[in-house]
């Protein structure tokens, strides 16, 4: 079983299952990926594999990257990502090995990691769901302000400044997000497509990392155990 896959988001649609139920799905173009480096405890201090995906024009790459890919017998690749694996599993990988969506066939639930859509610098109403202030009753030009950010009491701030982690305005989105335990709805081996239930982070064409779900919610855990 592969550690992970690299892919791109294609878009969303819906399908109907056997019971006629509507299932919202995201289509992911996953792989094929290639093993570009194997890290061993002897040489590197830990066990990991590096996957590479998607061809790139050599002039768009760098000499260092081209050389790195060449060592594994690969043409220049755009994405490289390292994944920890068990030391015992290292024998299952070799340089230049192709990993396709086929290796995810027996997997029911996956985590999808991507970069969320950037929303820019946002206030607390949009960013954290604060209610803001009243529209009337003498509220003066601060209808969407956060209000008090801490008083004298040590628990709510004070003692030299607002409390650490206080929700405030700032950059929203454009951040690494993991969507956990998404159902794998279907796999299309011929076209390297992976269909997962529900949305995944980021816009269309966004770069995604797909891995086996690290931990499952109780209901899904039971489902996985039953089958």
């Amino acid at each position: 079983m592969a550690a992970a896959l690299l892919g791109r988001k294609v878009g969303m649609t819906r399908i109907f299952d056997e019971a006629g139920k509507n299932v919202p799905v995201t289509i992911i173009q996953a792989g094929p990926c290639f093993v570009s480096q194997i890290k061993t405890p002897d040489a590197d201090g830990y066990a990991a594999i590096q996957l590479a995906a998607e061809d790139i024009k050599p002039r768009r790459s760098t000499m260092q990257q081209i050389g790195h890919d060449h060592k594994a017998g690969l043409s220049p690749k755009r994405f490289h990502k390292e994944f920890r694996v068990d030391e015992a599993d290292l024998g299952g990988y070799e340089l230049g090995q192709e990993i396709t969506v086929e290796s995810f066939e027996s997997i029911k639930f996956v985590d999808v990691i991507g970069t969320s859509k950037g929303k820019g610098y946002q206030g607390v109403v949009k960013r954290h769901g604060f209610k803001g202030q009243q529209a009337t009753h003498g509220v003066e030009r601060k209808h969407r302000s956060p209000g008090s950010i801490g008083g004298h009491a040590t628990d709510a701030g004070g003692s030299g400044g607002p409390k650490k982690g206080k929700k405030m305005p700032g950059q929203m989105g454009n951040k690494r997000i993991t969507a956990r335990s998404l159902d794998v709805v279907a796999i299309d081996k011929d076209n390297n497509l992976l269909l997962v239930k529900g949305p995944v982070p980021g816009g269309k064409d966004g770069f995604l990392v797909i891995r086996k779900a690290k931990r499952l919610y109780k209901r899904k855990h039971r489902l996985a155990q039953a089958s």
Binding site: G11, I15, I27, N191, L193, L195
Partner: peptide
């Protein structure tokens, strides 16, 4: 392109 892929996936279920 992306829309072709989506159409192709949908065609299996239509």
């Amino acid at each position: 392109n992306k829309q072709d892929i989506i159409n192709q996936v949908e065609s299996k279920y239509t």
